[in-house]
């Protein structure tokens, strides 16, 4: 329950700020490469740096052991790299990361609403078809 309410509030804040700042976690690199505009890239860097500083602080405050990075096998690594590449490539073609698409859809851009429909259909496609085939690959 706590997590659900907290995630709703976090989402509300991020949605509001995301609409005002037009933040996009994919658009930063794209804008820099196309027109040397660093506004969104700075936002991405700020996000990464803030989280990088905040994670150890949170672990310190919680007093728990750091979430030890676990070792991984080659197939998981390859699959992650392929998935990450797909996220970057297709998001660039789709003109925005998932967060940006949610914000655009909320602003009344119907193509982003279509994108969201595909987005949730993609989750079903993954669990019904992609994940079972991937699990067969794993040792």
């Amino acid at each position: 329950m706590t997590a659900a309410v907290a995630s709703l509030l976090v989402g509300l804040v991020l949605g509001y700020l995301g609409q005002r700042s037009r933040m996009c976690f994919v658009g930063g690199l794209r804008d820099f490469l196309l027109v040397r505009d660093t506004a969104l890239l700075k936002g991405l860097a700020a996000f990464g740096l803030t989280a990088w500083i905040a994670f150890p602080l949170a672990r310190l405050a919680a007093g728990s052991a750091p979430g030890a990075p676990t070792g991984t096998d080659a197939i998981t690594l390859l699959v992650t790299i392929a998935g990450g590449f797909g996220v970057g490539y297709v998001s660039t073609l789709a003109n925005g990361c998932p967060l940006r698409q949610h914000v655009l859809a909320a602003q009344g851009v119907t193509s982003s609403l279509t994108y969201l429909a595909g987005f949730f259909a993609g989750a079903l496609i993954f669990h019904v078809w992609v994940a079972p085939s991937l699990f067969r690959l794993l040792p």
């Binding site: 392929a82 998935g83 990450g84 590449f85 797909g86 996220v87 297709v90 998001s91 073609l93 789709a94 998932p98 698409q101 279509t114 994108y115 969201l116 429909a117 595909g118 987005f119 949730f120 259909a121 993609g122 989750a123 496609i125 993954f126 992609v130």
Partner: peptide
């Protein structure tokens, strides 16, 4: 695009 991004 949406389906591909979610799957990836």
């Amino acid at each position: 695009y949406g389906a591909l991004v979610m799957t990836c």
